[in-house]
């Protein structure tokens, strides 16, 4: 058995291998189970949930809970369903992601190719801002948003998410552009190309992979945010806050099947993004925030 192994795997016997597969499958079950339970029970009538087994497939399949969660369930005081909040989230996510990613690209470009005295300190400050507990900014943010008339509006939430997202996007682009040969930029400068020309014609065309990463990261973070949405959402609450209101509502019968349908609806966009582009997401997390 002296066949050279590639990578870090070790030679294992048959029993050990069976055991390994068993452990891996048990964990797969652990990760899948809660989601499986949610999906199955979102397709059952309510009496099958309260009187039955959560693991069982529906006797009578129904999409009524989904329709109700989407357009007629009671959210707070209004029976609007989650639809308007879903729209709020979209209206918030798209500009927030676009702006923070664009700023991050420009910042990363400056911080790697147009370096100046003190740029490392600025980057350090930007980097630390990614990790602050947001409780430290909640009070002043509430005050300022009120003063500039953006409290409870979508533009207010966009502003908040751009401000606290730009640190991460800058980090991604900085690490990515750092690996890009500076000689090419120098050569272009010799030829008379200016700051923006180099950015548009040389840097952006090679930024595809990191842009995917930055967009996915920002999209997931902004879509899944609850704290800012609950604090500053006002009349424009995002999906996560609405879902929480739906699930926690204390009036009437708890419609678990509707809650599950709502939870899956809230998770759907990020799950889709993850399924379509998950590999880049992971790769980016590795290369960006956690240089392992």
């Amino acid at each position: 058995m002296s066949i050279a192994t590639q990578g870090t795997d070790v030679n294992t016997g048959k029993i050990a291998r069976t055991f390994i597969y068993l452990v891996l499958l048990v964990f797969a079950l652990f990760y899948l189970l809660p989601f499986f339970v949610m999906v199955v029970n979102s397709l059952k009538p309510l009496d099958e949930i309260t009187g039955g087994n959560m693991m069982a497939l529906p006797d009578k399949w129904t999409i009524q809970p989904w329709l109700s969660a989407w357009s007629s369930a009671q959210i707070g005081v209004e029976p609007t369903g989650l639809k308007p909040y879903f729209v709020n989230s979209i209206l918030m996510v798209v500009p927030a992601v676009a702006i923070s990613t664009f700023l991050g690209a420009l910042n990363g470009y400056v911080l790697t190719k147009w370096r100046f005295r003190g740029d490392t300190i600025l980057f350090g400050l930007l980097l630390f801002s990614c990790f602050i507990p947001f409780q430290i900014v909640l009070i002043p943010m509430a005050t300022i948003l009120g003063k500039i008339g953006l409290a409870g509006t979508i533009p207010g939430l966009v502003l908040v998410h751009v401000v606290y997202g730009v640190g991460f996007t800058t980090l991604y682009y900085r690490n990515y552009y750092a690996a890009f040969p500076t000689e090419l930029v120098r050569a272009a400068m010799m030829d008379g190309a200016g700051f923006f020309r180099i950015f548009w014609r040389i840097m952006l065309p090679v930024s595809g992979p990191i842009t995917v990463v930055s967009v996915i990261w920002q999209f997931t973070n902004v879509w899944n945010d609850f704290l800012f949405g609950a604090s500053f959402g006002g009349q424009s609450q995002p999906m996560t806050v609405a879902l929480n209101n739906l699930v926690q509502s204390s009036t009437g019968v708890k419609e678990y099947n509707v809650h599950f349908a709502g939870a899956i609806l809230a998770a759907l966009p990020t799950l889709l993004v993850y399924i379509v582009a998950g590999r880049y997401f992971v790769r980016g997390l590795m290369a960006g925030s956690v240089k392992g």
């Binding site: 339970v37 993850y274 998950g278």
Partner: peptide, 24 residues
């Protein structure tokens, strides 16, 4: 196949995770 199964909870909001586990 296994990697995405282990990883997908990362894509969910904590509110969704909380809702699922609260009930479970």
């Amino acid at each position: 196949m296994l990697r995405p199964i282990y990883l997908y909870p990362m894509a969910l909001s904590f509110i969704v995770t909380g809702t699922a586990w609260k009930w479970f």
